[in-house]
Design a protein around this nucleic acid. Structure first.
Lengths: 208, 208
DNA sequence: TAAGAATTAGAAAGGTCGTTCTATATATTC
DNA sequence: GAATATATAGAACGACCTTTCTAATTCTTA
């Protein structure tokens, strides 16, 4: 059982909410295309900066096809976030060898690769929190859920490695990842990751 | 001469661009109110999430008063960013004692106080870069200018303190500040700053 | 007090937005 | 092959957007 799977068993309700009753096998292809196109456009221009017209146009789909799969634009945003989160965790999971000497460093490296391939410009979840905060929206919940799972991830990792200050270490590494993501917008994923790995090594060595 | 002033002399064109020909003494009160209201609303709901109608309504001014002072919404965004940047730098300048033993720590602390008072939720400049990227807009230039000035700031600080790896240190501290800002959205400025200061101390001590 | 500048409320123009509707066409399934 | 589900194009809706216009009013200042 991977670390992410373990966290999921701790948060059963949230997981159920995330996966819903969706049968992944019988998923419509059109829906997948819509999710993919929407994610790209939302990420590039922001949720509010992209209209449904552009999405259906680039997805080569009729208006009603979108509304057949998603009850509203907000619902589309929600599903985009859920899909992106799943991809992020499977990415982290597949790159972090828990029994390694330094799983923390591996996590930072994996996050760096994710940035290089999927997040060259800012963080979609943070953006969702900011854009939809205070509007009593499910979107914010989903995005915040992802972030608290990140904290849990590092906390559990610290626990596994017998660190006594799990909570502090988890927060520091989450801060490090968030900083790397922001820096990617400024100096690119390559350099940002280089610096964060250097910092991570220093932290692991010199934190009680 | 403070460190920020010194950086400004290095970037004369940009400074001139920022300050323009504006005579701060004869500035209209209405304009100030508009800038203040717009900054608050833009920060809370995003540039695209706030309409001019809401801004003029909360500022208690007429539509034409806004257009008398700003040529467009984009121009309003620009001036809001410029004003916010000025406030940020005077904030940092007034809190960082350059001759201190650890000006780096002071800078992190000052940034933390800025977050607590002015940026409880994300970074306005990063957001501007993301929202307006690729649209050939002055807004992105202003926001990116602010970020590169931040890098310069730490680079100059490192240089002053006789560190040999100025560039690396500057990038690492900028990453740290950006991470703190992001974490503020998740766990609040208080705790985020606490963690970043701890990390900063570790870094200063154990980086060549 | 007279003249010029700034501000006012509100309407109007011209767009785009999210969403719904209609009517036709294409797939899928029994 | 009939029945059911899914997709199509595109018009229509009302709401909201930024920007412009008008004409009356208030403020500033010489």
């Amino acid at each position: 059982m991977t670390l992410v799977q373990e966290i999921d068993t701790l948060n059963v309700e949230r997981l159920f909410y995330l996966k819903g009753e969706v049968d992944h096998m019988s998923r419509s292809t059109k829906k997948d295309i819509l999710l993919q196109v929407a994610e790209r456009l939302f990420y590039e221009h922001g949720f509010r900066g992209v209209g449904l017209k552009q999405i259906i146009s680039e997805a080569n789909v009729a208006t009603m096809t979108l509304y057949n799969h998603f009850s509203s634009k907000d619902n589309l945003v929600e599903e985009v976030l859920i899909q992106r989160e799943e991809r992020y965790w499977s990415y982290l999971d597949s790159h972090v060898e828990m029994d390694s000497d330094s799983p923390f460093i591996l996590a930072v490296e994996a996050h760096g690769r994710w940035l290089k391939e999927q997040s060259y410009k800012g963080d979609m979840f943070l953006r969702a929190i900011e854009d939809y905060a205070g509007t009593d929206n499910e979107i914010e919940n989903i995005a915040r859920g992802h972030k608290s799972k990140l904290l849990q991830y590092f906390q559990l990792l610290a626990q596994r490695k017998g660190k006594d200050n799990e909570r502090d270490l988890a927060n520091q590494f989450t801060l490090l990842l968030e900083g790397t993501t922001s820096m990617t917008t400024l100096i690119g994923a390559e350099k940002a990751t280089e610096y964060s790995i250097a910092m991570a090594r220093t932290l692991v060595q010199h934190t009680s």
